Amino acid sequence: MNVPKCPICQQSDIGILDGQCAVCRSCSKSKRCVFQFCLACQREWPRDSSTTKSCMLPNCALRAALLSDTKISDPQSSVRGCPYFRACPGCKALLTHNGIGCPNIVCPHCERHFCFRCLRQRCFGVIHIEALALYTHRLSFFPDDVCPCRVVDNKQSLTVLGL
Rank of each mutant, 00 (worst) to 15 (best):
M1L: 14
M1D: 15
M1I: 09
N2A: 13
N2F: 03
V3D: 09
P4R: 11
P4S: 09
K5D: 11
P7G: 11
P7S: 07
P7R: 02
I8Y: 14
Q10P: 01
Q11T: 15
Q11I: 10
Q11Y: 02
S12Q: 08
D13M: 08
G15F: 12
I16M: 01
I16A: 04
D18T: 09
Q20V: 02
Q20A: 09
C21Q: 15
A22T: 07
V23W: 06
V23L: 07
V23R: 10
C24K: 04
R25A: 05
S26G: 06
S26W: 10
S26C: 13
C27V: 04
S28F: 08
K29T: 07
K31T: 02
R32G: 10
C33R: 14
V34D: 05
V34F: 05
F37C: 03
L39D: 08
Q42F: 06
R43D: 15
R43L: 15
R43W: 15
E44F: 02
R47G: 13
R47L: 12
D48M: 05
S49V: 14
T51K: 04
T52C: 06
K53R: 14
L57M: 12
L57Y: 10
L57T: 08
N59R: 13
C60A: 14
A61Y: 14
L62R: 10
A64V: 13
L66C: 11
L66M: 15
L67H: 02
L67W: 05
S68C: 14
D69R: 02
T70A: 15
T70G: 00
D74R: 03
D74P: 10
Q76G: 10
S78A: 13
S78C: 13
V79T: 05
R80F: 03
R80V: 09
C82Y: 01
R86L: 12
R86K: 14
R86S: 11
A87I: 08
A87E: 09
A87M: 02
G90M: 01
C91H: 13
A93E: 12
A93R: 14
T96V: 10
T96P: 06
N98E: 10
I100P: 00
G101F: 02
G101A: 12
C102Q: 15
C102P: 12
P103D: 00
N104Y: 00
I105N: 04
I105W: 08
V106P: 13
P108D: 08
H109I: 06
H109A: 09
E111Y: 15
E111G: 01
R112T: 12
R112N: 09
H113N: 10
H113V: 04
F114V: 05
F114S: 08
F114G: 07
C115T: 02
F116S: 03
R117W: 03
R120E: 11
Q121W: 00
Q121V: 07
R122K: 04
F124G: 07
I129D: 02
I129Q: 04
I129P: 00
E130T: 14
A131R: 14
L134M: 01
L134V: 03
Y135D: 06
Y135R: 11
Y135W: 09
T136I: 01
T136V: 03
T136Q: 00
H137A: 06
S140N: 06
F141L: 07
F141V: 00
C147S: 11
C147Y: 01
C147N: 02
P148R: 03
C149D: 12
R150N: 15
R150W: 00
V152Q: 01
V152G: 00
N154Q: 07
Q156L: 06
L161Y: 10
G162N: 01
L163M: 10
